[in-house]
Every structure is written in structure tokens, then in C-alpha cells.
Design a protein around this nucleic acid. Sequence first.
DNA 1: TCTGAAATTCATTCCTT
DNA 2: AAGGAATGAATTTCAGA
Lengths: 155, 155
Amino acid sequence: MDRIDRAILRELQEDGRLTNQELAQRVGLSASPCMRRVRQLERDGVIRGYRAVVDPEAVGRGFEVLVSIEVRRDRATVEAFEAALRDIPDVVEAYRLFGSPGCLLRIAVADLAAYERLWIERLTSLDGVAEVNSQIIMKRVKEPRGLPVDPGGRA
Amino acid sequence: MDRIDRAILRELQEDGRLTNQELAQRVGLSASPCMRRVRQLERDGVIRGYRAVVDPEAVGRGFEVLVSIEVRRDRATVEAFEAALRDIPDVVEAYRLFGSPGCLLRIAVADLAAYERLWIERLTSLDGVAEVNSQIIMKRVKEPRGLPVDPGGRA
DNA sequence: TCTGAAATTCATTCCTT
DNA sequence: AAGGAATGAATTTCAGA
């Protein structure tokens, strides 16, 4: 990974649909070596994929909530709990944490009523859940725009 | 927005580099109307952009932390604080919340030492910050893969 | 709004440096 | 590793239904 690879990652995080030609030009390469590098980054798993970013409001998911959950900490319970989370489409992001809370979710639903339903029917009812604390998001302060990729003098 | 638009959003969230032909086939359209719809969705802001998803480990950002911050709640302080957050590249996601904490960040850095530096130099030192609580992420339970787009019977 | 064809641009391979 | 040329696809526009 040299500075050109990093530049490629920066550009593709900014615009994942750049044509190879445009990308090549921006990173100061001609088309073929540029494509070789992109393919290599994909094969190595550095680029995990490409996704369209969709406006939550436009698809009826404008009500977002951060939920801290405390679950009983034994292996079976945690694994079942996390598997259950993966099956709830409204859970768009989930982390297991050190300390407390043990888990944090980001949830996107249509409105408060939809959230109430989700909360009572699918979250509090999960096995081993001791505490569910919901915080409504007022505003997204910083859009996830991908990771910073440092210039990197060498390497 | 009909069910075809929704199908387009679903496919492009899954793979943002689908060729228009492949996409058209999957949603049961021929190439040109499919492209027109995609352009329309882009113009309407339903599709906000396309991004490559990069492996954090591969770019030296494998150490992730969730940070709750309490800031003095007057307008000037909050605005300055949020502007400052937008200028810290390591802050990859930030929300302003109702209730407490007033703000939650996700941070991606190289390691604990890098986080300590960020914490002391750029977080605790921000004006109006009353409390900073850091939780290290053990595991990403659910990758953000975009928003669910319901089939939608009509409309 | 969709289909289908035409013109243009792009991706991709191969070969040379 | 990178550049350049050639081929085959894909994008994109436009006419017609």
C-alpha cells in the first residue's frame, strides 16, 4: 500500500462510481495500472464493497434512535442476542462494547409509533435483556463518509 | 417511488457498482428506463452518493471507540463544538441526541495510544465539554449495509 | 413510460518499456 | 510496475410506440 493506493481509497470513498479513467487521472496514473490496483485492493479485502447511500427520510426511515442494551453476559445469551439483532432490519448498526452498556444499536424506523412497536415486540422481549435505554437522535452531526486515509510518506 | 424504485435502491445499496444493464435485468426493466430512474433518484437526493467501503484494519483504523460527550447546552457552544467535530477526521460518525448524553461519536484510530492523544488533545480540550465517556468497541455486530427498503404495495 | 438502435465512452486484455 | 493500443462492453442519447 503506497500513497497511490491511499489516494485511490480516498477517491472511491468519496465517489464509488468514479470511472476507472477519471480515477486514474486523479491519482496520476494511466488506466491500466489504476485498474490493476483497484482489483488488487478488492481482492485483498481492503475495499469491501460499494454501496449507494440513501436518504433515510426518502425511504420512510427518518426516525433514528440509539439504543443501549444490557444483556446477561454468558456466551450462549450473547450469541443468540447478537444473531437476533442481525435479523431485525430496522437495526442498521450494532456494536458490542467493553464495559457498560454492553451493546449499542442504531435503529432507523418511520416514526415514534414504529419504534414503540419495535421496542416492545422485538427488543425488550429478547432473551437475557436486562435493560434497554433509548435515545432519540436529534441531528446527524457528521455523516459517515468513510475512513480517513492518511497520505503516508512511505510504506 | 414505486416498487421498482425501491428494488433499485435495494440493489444499489447492496452493490453500488452494478452496471446499469445488470441492474435493469434484476429489477425487470430494460436499460434505458432503468438509467432514467437511477438518475431521477440521484437528482431527487434519494441516492445521496456512492461510496467504497474500506476495511478499517487495512488502513490503520482498527481501534474504534464510542464516545459520549456532555456539552454545555447553549447555542453558541453547541454550534462551535459540532463544527469542531466535523474538523476531526478520526471522528467518523456523530449524533446530537435528546436527553443525555447530548452527543455520541464513533471514532476510528490506529490504536490505544492514538486514541489517548486524540482524547486529551482534541476532545477534552473543546470548549464547553463537561464530560467525556469512552467505550471501546469489542466487535462490530452488524455492519452498516444501508437502510431497509420495504417492498411497498403501492405508491 | 417503455423499447430498441446508434453513437460514444469505458473496461479490459495484451504487449512493450 | 507503468504506459499504450486494440477489442469488446457498457453507457447514454434519441427516435418511435
